[in-house]
Amino acid sequence: MQPIEGRVWVFGNDVDTDLIIAARYLNTSDPAELAKHCMEDADPGFAAKVQAGDIIVAGKNFGCGSSREHAPISIKAAGAACVIARDFARIFYRNAFNTGLPILECAGVSGIQSGARLRVDFDKGVITVLDSGETHVTKPIPPFMQELLAAGGLMPYIKRKLAARV
């Protein structure tokens, strides 16, 4: 994966799926519609402010709550290139890889402020704060997840498996 550089938006602990995309917007699954309401109840202006390539940084248990895939879909469609959190709720974790939203677990990012610029090297698992040069080394993405990402998500991965069966 290519390294990315982007501006940071910081959120706190236990950011739940209702904060990421409120249930009142789940009467559609259109990514562009969902993007308009991304993070609305946490930061009402977020969807308008976030720019392509920006990075979300959060605390523990990001994405807790419902199984709605609309959550990673709305983040991705809003333009965020990646989410870095201390840890993720498990369904969100699956959904992010399955839908091709890169996410990284990293405890060290808690001091980073909104507006900082980061460089994220997924292959090496290194996060660099560009202004200070400070670096954080993350847990590597587990091999199976790397396989999913390499295939382009769960669907292409399954497609290949199904094709191999016949």
Binding site: S67, R68, E69, I91, R94, N95, N98, T99, G153, L154, M155, I158, K161, L162
Partner: peptide, 12 residues
């Protein structure tokens, strides 16, 4: 699980 996991399970 999420919808993509469900889709995969529905198929396989």
């Amino acid at each position: 699980v999420g919808s993509t996991d469900l889709a995969a399970a529905m198929a396989t």
